[in-house]
Write a protein that binds this DNA or RNA. Structure first.
Lengths: 210, 210
DNA sequence: CCCCCTCTTGATAGATCGTTCTACTAAGAG
DNA sequence: CTCTTAGTAGAACGATCTATCAAGAGGGGG
C-alpha cells in the first residue's frame, strides 16, 4: 500500500477522479455485469479510461487483486445502501416492502444490468477461484451479521433474526437473478410481498408468545 | 436435426453413451460450474471425452448452440427432479422442508459444485448474450408455471400461488448462491425453514378466510 | 462391388487473453 | 540543478480461445 504523499498524480483537472479510482469503478461495473471470466482487463482499461499498464501498477496481483478489491469494497457499499433505504421507513414491514420496490425501480432504470454487485462474480468463481470465493463469502457473512443486527433490534429473538436476515439476502439475490434474466420487475415485487408476509407472520408469532 | 437411422456410431462399447450425449453432459457440468465465459470448448471436448471437431458437427452454431441446448434441456430436468422430491411427502409444508434438506445434503455431497444448473450461466449472460438470456428466461418461466400449478392445487388461490411459486424459486436460487460461496449448508436449511413458515402463514390465512 | 452419408479427427487460423517488460513523463526533495 | 519516485504508455509474449477445414473411417443401399 503506497503511502499517500499528498502529491497529486499529474497535472489533471482537479475534480476528475484519479486513475486508480477510475480503474476501480470500471472494474466494479464490468465484473458485476459480465462476471469474472467474462471481463477482460483490456476492456476495463478502455472503459476507465486508463492506460493498460496502470492496472498492474495499482493492482500488482493483476486480475485477482482487482476482483478481490472490488468484492471487498462494493460489498459493504451495497449493504450500506440497502440499510439506508430500509431506514427510510419506521415500520419494519413497510421498510422491507419499500426496499424491494426501490430495488425494482432501480433495476428497471439501469436496464436490468445492475442487481447485486457481487452475485455474478460469486457464482462465477465459486468452484474455480478459492481466493475470490472466500472474499465473496466474507461479504455475505458481513451482510448476514448486519441483517441479524437489524432484525434483532426488532424481534429480540436472535435465532429468528438469523433466519430472517439470511432469508432477506437469499430472496433478494434470487429476485435479482429472475428479474435480470426475464427483464421483468415482477419477481422483485413478489419477493417484497413474500418477505413482508414472513415478517408479519413472525410478528404475530412473537406477540402471541409474549 | 439429423434423423436417427438406428445405426450405431462407430464400433463402440454398446452401453457407453454416444458422442453427442457425452458432449452434452460435459457441457452441462462445465457450464453450470464455471459459467459461460469461464468454460472453454476444448475443456468440454477433453472432459466428454470427444474429438474437438465433433462439437461443431453436432452443434454447428458452436458455443451458443451448445449453451442454449444445455439450458433448455437441463432446466426442465431440474424442475422434474425438484417436483419428484416434493412428491415424496404428502403435506406441502413437510414436502418443502424435505426438499430443502435434500438439496442441502446433495450440495454438500458434490462439494458445493452443483447447485442450480442454469443460475451461473443466467447471471453470466444476462447482460451480454440476449439469446441465452432469453433461453434462461423461458426456463424460469416454465418453472414458475410448474410451481404455480403445484401451489394452486394446494391453495386454490392463483394469485397467492404465483407469489409462492416465484418465492420458492427465488429463495432456492439465493440459498444455492450463499451455500456455494460460503461452502456451508446452513443457508439452504434457513431457506427451508423460511419457506415452510411462509406456507404455514398462507395456510392459516386461507383457512381464516374460508 | 462402390458410392454415400454420418461421424470422427486433429491441425490450423486468427483473435484475444493475462501478464511482463521497457521506456517515458512529470513533479517533489535536496 | 540532479536524483528519486509515481504514474503513464503500450509493445511483446506465450497461452488459450472459438471456429473452420480437409481428410479419413465405416456401415447401408445401389
Amino acid at each position: 500500500m503506497p503511502k499517500a504523499t499528498g502529491r497529486k498524480p499529474q497535472g489533471r483537472a482537479s475534480d476528475a477522479p484519479d486513475t486508480r479510482t477510475r480503474i476501480r469503478r470500471a472494474a466494479a461495473a464490468q465484473f458485476a455485469r459480465r462476471g469474472y471470466a467474462g471481463t477482460g482487463l483490456k476492456q476495463i482499461a478502455a472503459e476507465a479510461p486508463a492506460p493498460f499498464g496502470s492496472i498492474y501498477h495499482f493492482f500488482p496481483g493483476g486480475k485477482d487483486d482487482l476482483a478481490e478489491d472490488m468484492i471487498r469494497t462494493t460489498g459493504p457499499q451495497f449493504m450500506r445502501l440497502v440499510l439506508g433505504v430500509l431506514a427510510e421507513r419506521d415500520d419494519p414491514v413497510e421498510a422491507v416492502e419499500h426496499t424491494f420496490a426501490a430495488a425494482a425501480r432501480d433495476l428497471a432504470a439501469n436496464d436490468y444490468a445492475d442487481g447485486c454487485p457481487i452475485a455474478t462474480m460469486a457464482l462465477d468463481v465459486a468452484s474455480t477461484n478459492d481466493r475470490l470465493r472466500a472474499a465473496a463469502a466474507d461479504v455475505f457473512g458481513e451482510w448476514t451479521d448486519g441483517g441479524i443486527a437489524w432484525f434483532t433490534r426488532w424481534t429480540g429473538d436472535a435465532a429468528r433474526a438469523a433466519d430472517l436476515a439470511r432469508t432477506m439476502i437469499m430472496i433478494i439475490e434470487g429476485a435479482f437473478l429472475l428479474s435480470r434474466t426475464t427483464r421483468d420487475p415482477e419477481p422483485l415485487h413478489a419477493a417484497g410481498r413474500s418477505m413482508a408476509a414472513l415478517l408479519r407472520a413472525a410478528r404475530t408469532d412473537l406477540s402471541a408468545r409474549g
